[in-house]
Computed example of a mutant assay.
Amino acid sequence: MSDERMPVYRVLSGSVAILVGLGLARFGYPPLVPGMVEAGWFSAAAAGYLGASNLLGYLVGALTASRFGERVGAAAAIRFSLVLIALSFLLCAWAAPFAWFFVWRFVSGWAGGVLMVVGASTVLTTTPPSRRPMAGAMVFSGVGLGILFAANIVPWLTAVSVSWAWAAQGALCLVLAGATWWAWPGKQASPAAASPASEGARAGRGLSLVVLLVVVGYGLQSVGYVPHTLFWVDFLAREQGHGTGFASVQWSIFALGAIIGPFFSGWFAGRIGWYGALLVSVTLMAGAVLLSSVAEAFLLVSLCSLVVGAMVPGLVSMTSGYLAQLVPLAQHQRAWGWATTSFALAQAVGGYALAGVFGVVGTYPPVFVIGGISLALGLVVTALTGSGRARA
């Protein structure tokens, strides 16, 4: 039936929005740091603060995205954010004061938060229910594509010129913004037919508690992301003594997992439902993060890299899809904004806390154990939603 067809152009454009907003705006920055430090633009410490400014901007973006999208419209919010990120790269393509870079890194984070909330929600709520698992997979695979680009292309660009690396990413963002410009509706498109679960949720007073549990569980799960996204490469290269070559291979495996993870999640959710797929996936990630604290053999380390890499965007995709099942589609953007804010806040706090733990104990395994425990707690909280969730 025609009303069950996936809006392919919009779904692919959603993937581009996530690629630009998170894959490039966040993961395209770390490979630039060594070149900037060597060129004398900033010290390593200053470059680290610039990276943190992006996380702060992302948190503010998640907090304000829903209201901003409602005020200016989804299409305008998405296009504006894509252009802002392109400008944030282009306007940092030469040496400038720290404050200049801080502002533009913050702006890129804010725009990334808007794209995550408004872009993802616009795609999911205008896609027929039967197509949402695959649509979500395609959208959130943009994270993995950005990580892969950052891991393999950005270092090569930086070796040519730091300025060229900044400018090239800005130009790529402009091209991608132009290619997807007309994918977004001039007005917020009418939501695709809601499932009975979503419709029934309108009258359910207990729904707010269920959504709150999903949001809290998602925040706890986000702490489990921190060990691999911040410390995995250094843990393998220095503490385990495998060297940078081994660690680089593992980061590429992580990126590969981040590309295929959303598709696995979409396939899995299509067969056992969002709730069951989310619980199984959180369990897998918790096990892989805990195992990472002791894994040293190449195959075991690679398995951890692949599973955690797959679950990083996979859990994002499944949480967004699960919320689309739990709430009326008109409320999905706001609920997803709450979840993204919880994720961003807990990840930021968790990042500083785990860095503090490492500073005290001087070794990484306890950091991974704490991350695994946080995922397990998130699993318990999410599992509690099974008794009160709306059912199709």
Rank of each mutant, 00 (worst) to 15 (best):
F68G: 10
W181T: 10
A86R: 02
F268A: 09
G243W: 13
G57R: 05
W94M: 08
S130R: 12
V294P: 04
Y9A: 12
L174I: 09
R71P: 03
Q250D: 06
E239L: 00
T126V: 00
S342W: 01
W251H: 06
S320I: 11
A339S: 11
T340V: 07
E296Y: 14
M6P: 03
A348S: 13
I260M: 14
F106K: 04
F231Q: 11
A189I: 09
M6E: 04
G371A: 04
V175A: 15
S195K: 08
L377F: 08
R202V: 12
A62T: 06
M138W: 07
P196V: 11
Q221R: 00
V216N: 02
R389I: 05
L56I: 13
F231A: 09
G204P: 08
L300G: 12
V8K: 05
F149N: 07
L148W: 12
Q169F: 03
G224Q: 08
W267G: 07
G112Q: 04
D3H: 11
L148M: 15
L345V: 13
V114T: 10
N152R: 07
A62P: 00
A165T: 10
M134G: 01
R202H: 09
V301F: 10
T127G: 03
L91N: 03
T64G: 05
A255V: 03
M36R: 11
E38I: 07
F264W: 14
A247W: 08
V20E: 10
V160T: 15
L207N: 15
N152I: 02
V16C: 08
A159F: 08
I153R: 10
L377R: 02
V160A: 14
A193S: 13
A353T: 10
A47P: 12
G266C: 08
P129R: 02
L56P: 01
I272A: 00
G48D: 09
L284N: 07
A247V: 05
V367C: 02
T180P: 09
D3Y: 04
L323D: 09
V380C: 11
G359D: 04
G14Y: 05
G378C: 00
A45F: 09
S121E: 04
G112H: 07
D3M: 08
L82A: 04
R26F: 08
Q325E: 14
R26W: 06
L82C: 04
S88W: 03
W100T: 15
F98W: 15
P313N: 13
V307I: 14
A44K: 13
G371P: 12
R202F: 03
K187I: 01
E4A: 14
F298T: 15
V117Y: 03
A120H: 02
F298L: 15
V215L: 05
G273N: 05
L345W: 06
A159M: 13
